[in-house]
Amino acid sequence: MLLLRSILFQTYWWGISAVMTISHVPLFLAPRKWTVHQIKMWGRVSLWGLRNIVGLDVEVRGREHIPQGGALIASKHQTMWETIALFNLNPDPAIIFKRELTYVPFYGWYAMKAGMILIDRSTKATAMRRMIRRGQECIDQNRQIVVFPEGTRRPVGAEPDYKSGIYGLYGQLNVPCVPVAHNSGLYWPRRGYTWRPGKVIIEFLPPIAPGLKRQEFMDTLQNTIEAATDRLVAEGQN
């Protein structure tokens, strides 16, 4: 049954993704906001499929902490789910992606057109300067910069591995940082193609005020995200 639902969802998802992705391409000529809107629509359609085909629901906690203006959003990264959810829940997000993504047809074009921040991870110092410059542009436009401070997806329960790259943005841009925890890894497949029914809980936590020094910021960020993640994972396993 689980496998059947997952196959059904996958068929649905590839189908709608193909249609929505290709049909929108001419609108790349329109302003950026149109593409942002289209991606949000695709996110809603994807989450609709998860809810109605797989039986995977979403609970959002701490909505009052979702920033309406410029801010950093630092999230735990377990699966692709939170990329979709964070794009849809924030008013005008700029997600930080690795540059290689631009080589993926469609996906990369969308990322560029929607104004995501693409970073080259091979050249450190220049990449950091570029990222901060792009970050400042986004903050000036009241956008939310979404960062996965561990750099990559990590399995549930893995030893935390926070990189201090996010401090470059926090320290230079002087904006609050909203930590985000969730338990998507319990439901969304890391490998393979079996989605599990249930309810992903995503929690926006009270912001870390600007101005902390590097070590205190990194410690606060990690402790806060990990404490909340552990609690949500335990809640999901009950």
């Binding site: 930590p179 936590l205 009270p206 402790n223 609690r231």
Partner: peptide, 10 residues
């Protein structure tokens, strides 16, 4: 476990 309202905490 630290309840969400007291976060952020280091």
């Amino acid at each position: 476990g630290l309840p969400p309202e007291v976060l952020p905490v280091s």
